[in-house]
Design a protein around this nucleic acid. Sequence first.
DNA 1: GCGATCAGAT
DNA 2: CACATCTGATCGC
Length: 443
Amino acid sequence: MESGMISVDKWSSGSQAYFLTHLHADHTAGLSAAWRRGPLFCSRLTAKLFPCKFPEFDLSLLRVLDIGCWDTLSLTSPSSGSPATVYVKAIDARHCPGSVMFLFRGEFGCMLYTGDFRWEKSVDGTNMGSTMLLDALEDHKLDSLCLDNTYCNPKYSFPSREVAARQVVDIITAHPDHDIIIGIDSLGKEDLLLYISSVLNIKIWVWPERLQIMHLLGFVDNFTTKTTLTRVRAVPRYSFGIDTLESLNTFKPTIGILPSGLPWAMKYVTGNKRLFCSPSASLNNKTNFRPEISNCSKIQDSTGASADDKRYYKHIHVVPYSDHSCFVEIQEFIELLRPINIKGIVSSSSSYIDPRYYFGHLCGTKQASWRVHQKLENEKGVDMIGEGVDKVEGAPVKLETPPMSGMKRRLDHVDFFGIRVSRVSLLRRLSRGARISDHEELV
DNA sequence: GCGATCAGAT
DNA sequence: CACATCTGATCGC
């Protein structure tokens, strides 16, 4: 395969232009201060935050894309050497500050790379983004949608971040004499913290580097690094464990709140209906988003919680505050765009489901072609799409994980209708890059 | 010794 | 099931 033109969240050599959706570490793996491979396109806010993450980075390499504005790239076709123009527009992805999707138009057709995104219905930013996307498409078909399929399964159902934020506030107000620690990452969940701060009229402690981020984001009054000013502290999520909580509780009653995507806590849902069954379980009655699991007051029963689980939930409250779209939101997004093809950008070793399993019927004009294509490929014994893709004609099914040996051979690139998708590691969630080549056929 | 990658953890 | 991140081990140069 010759070199391509464009890479998104992927930093190996061979492209003429590089795009960064947002500054989370799993999307910047491979970027460093020594980066010299070409112009790096990102949103204005990402560019502003960039030096926090890469202090020595040569900022003259950054190219800011303003949200909603077309930009034109004059590139060279790797195969023919002739000029090739690519148009790109950034759309707010509503995942974390600075996060964007990229809509590309070029010889390869029209392609949207979502990066990580949350598409909550009836939220202003989402509605604006929808309008922008439809306007940008005009009457073009979206040939290819590279989709954040993190929760691309109907079992993933969680409330809006607004509702989840109220749950967090309810938990805090139900513990008036406790210290509160909230696990967050280096970027994201700012709206949650601002909501807590404004509703409860308190400052929130953050660690010094995080305060710097808050200031860059324009939040100057709600956060502090002085522990004496507040009982609510936001701490790095990785520092957030049972041992920490237990040890804190020897000094002062303290609870932890983990605003998190659902899967990590899923084991407490399936089978024993134990999700969010923490000390304040009764709080969830008003705001719980799934009635069948709201009745979880039997934390002491004998349905199988381990001793560690009990230790954990004695102090730690998991709240379903997610910066990724839930299944229904993904569905609505696809219904809005009606792409011809969909490709998931997130894969993991044990549970990759091709988005077309659930959404193939929503795809545009080529909806039938996939199955024909699959049938042909299956007969040839070639799996074009990768591990976990169905081999059954007709209604797709989730496949068992193929043997490791087979997976490892496909780590590098997977051809998918003209888009080269990088699989850096299937054991972890590092494979989120895509490269577009101009000389490949796009169905 | 350094950066990239991997493994395991929360 | 699996987020985003850290630490520490290992690999290749």
